[in-house]
Simulated assay, not measured.
Amino acid sequence: MIITDTHTHLYSEAFDEDRDEMMQRALDAGVERFFIPAIDSTYTQSMLDLESNYSDNVFLMMGLHPTHVKEDYKDELAHVEEWLDKKKFYAVGEIGVDLYWDKTFLKEQQEAFAYQIRLAKRHQLPIVIHCRDAFDEVFEVLEQEKDDGLFGIFHCFTGTLEQAYQAISYNMKLGIGGVATFKNGKIDQFLSQIDLKHIVLETDSPYLAPAPYRGKRNESSYIVKVLEKLSSIYSMPEKEIAAITTENSKEIFGV
């Protein structure tokens, strides 16, 4: 059984003390494919080091995270563009809009989001969307940019059934992680109405650990708890869900 974690920050400082052991636990659990989203330029070298150390299993994205869109965002976008021209990445992400912490840079976040979507299209890459308290603002940009070149993953999907269908209409898979295991996560109540062909698995580690680890550091091996939950929701063997969601990830990332 091969499991794919489509969204995990393995380069995070949270793993500096035990990264190799954490990676081994994930590999032992059947997680063989790790897709790594970018945050900003300060993490690029750590991501490259991770790829170098786990070249058979780690696949990098490049992008500017919306919470890191600040006054210098154009410099950061130039960094993204430079690296996309320089080496192989598997997606532009994570990109999008986040209004949970701060609404100061909404206009700049949307500009950066649209710009990076266009970069992804130029390189024929998927996008990986971060959306927090910003579904309308994200959909506004997607509506402007929709065409045959737009596709990707709506990471950490936590919206309604209606919003799920809207995301899918823009050629997005839904990234399902620890939230599906939360008692108040809500998406578990309607997920069975969404065909598995639209679903990929993720952890977003070190964030959003699934039950029973909620509140602790998340890691990629915990994706088995998400798999267990989806097995229950879809009344389907874990092995089959792992196979379908891994195929879905291959469709998106091309590897």
Rank of each mutant, 00 (worst) to 15 (best):
A164Q: 03
L196S: 05
L191E: 06
P210V: 00
S249F: 01
D5H: 11
C156T: 06
V69P: 08
K229S: 07
F34D: 01
I2N: 12
K121T: 14
I194C: 05
E21T: 08
C156S: 15
D28T: 09
M172F: 02
K107F: 09
K86E: 10
L84N: 10
E108V: 10
S12A: 15
A242G: 06
D85V: 07
G215P: 13
D136E: 14
F59M: 01
I187H: 05
L119M: 15
M23L: 09
S231T: 04
C156N: 05
S220Y: 04
E238R: 06
V179K: 02
D147H: 03
V200A: 04
T104Q: 10
W83D: 11
L77Y: 09
I95N: 15
S46V: 01
V138D: 13
V224Q: 01
A14R: 05
A134E: 03
A114N: 04
F182R: 11
V80D: 04
F190N: 06
V128M: 13
L106R: 13
T44D: 07
R122V: 13
A164F: 00
Y165T: 06
T246V: 08
Q24T: 12
H7S: 15
L50I: 14
S41A: 11
D16F: 04
V80P: 07
F154C: 10
V141A: 12
E143F: 05
W101D: 10
I176F: 07
V58Q: 08
S232C: 07
E111R: 04
M22N: 04
P66R: 04
F34A: 07
K121R: 10
S169W: 03
T245E: 02
G215L: 13
K88G: 07
E94S: 02
